[in-house]
């Protein structure tokens, strides 16, 4: 037997085992899914403000977990529409607040862990995942860089509304995005979200630096 034949056999053995496990999968998978849920509901307990019922999933969380963030298109569209419907838009039709307050919020990583006190108001955690102001170098990279965000997009009302919507509920735009739903989950208030919109869009904000070298980065 030559190397090519050997390789052929190896490939078909692998393919056979893949189909086999995929077939065996579905029934076993359901059993394992059910057992996982049972274990999770049993093995967590209240601690501080983090109550045990936080492990209960809503429809969106369950779908993103099941499909490993890669939900089929039809379901994705359905989930996004359902999230979008629940966005509470500002009653006064204004989307921009104070960028200075927004910067403070963006810096704060506080919020909603069991070591946070009930009276601590959550921050935005934005720098945990995003680059924003050019001056802050300790930024995370789970989300895209938002430096120069307003300079690139301008401040037209539709842009303001889209940013407000993203911060309120990023899942209305991309069902399994790795960004928390700050408005939907009651983490940030309407006024706080407006301050963050201003941080991203206001021409005076450090997110939109005037000097060209920072802008180029």
């Amino acid at each position: 037997m030559n190397a090519k034949q050997l390789f052929g056999i190896a490939v078909s053995v692998c393919l056979a085992s893949v189909t086999f496990s995929a077939q065996a999968g579905s029934k076993d998978d359901k059993k394992l899914d059910a057992k996982t849920t049972e274990i999770i509901k049993r093995d967590f307990r209240d601690k501080g403000i983090a109550k045990a019922d936080r492990v209960n999933q809503d429809e969106l969380q369950a779908a993103c977990s099941k499909y490993l963030d890669d939900v089929p298109d039809k379901l994705k569209g359905k989930l996004e529409a359902a999230q979008a419907k629940e966005i509470k838009w500002p009653a006064d039709g204004k989307y921009m607040g104070d960028w200075k307050a927004g910067e403070k919020l963006a810096q704060s990583g506080r919020g909603m862990t069991w070591s946070d006190k009930p009276e601590d108001t959550p921050g935005g955690n934005c720098y945990n995942c995003h680059r924003l102001s050019a001056k802050e170098i300790a930024y995370g990279t789970i989300g895209p860089s938002l430096l120069n965000y307003g300079k690139k997009r301008g401040t037209k009302e539709e842009v303001q509304r889209s940013v407000y919507g993203h911060i309120y509920n990023a899942k209305a735009y991309n069902a399994c995005a790795n960004m928390p739903r700050f408005g939907h989950m009651g983490i940030l208030t309407e006024a706080q979200i407006k301050d963050l919109v201003a941080l991203l869009l206001d021409p005076e904000s450090p997110v939109n630096p005037k000097d060209a070298s920072a802008a180029a980065k």
Partner: peptide
């Protein structure tokens, strides 16, 4: 469990 999304931050 590694892929189980839940809680206020998903």
């Amino acid at each position: 469990i590694f892929n189980y999304r839940a809680g206020p931050y998903d």
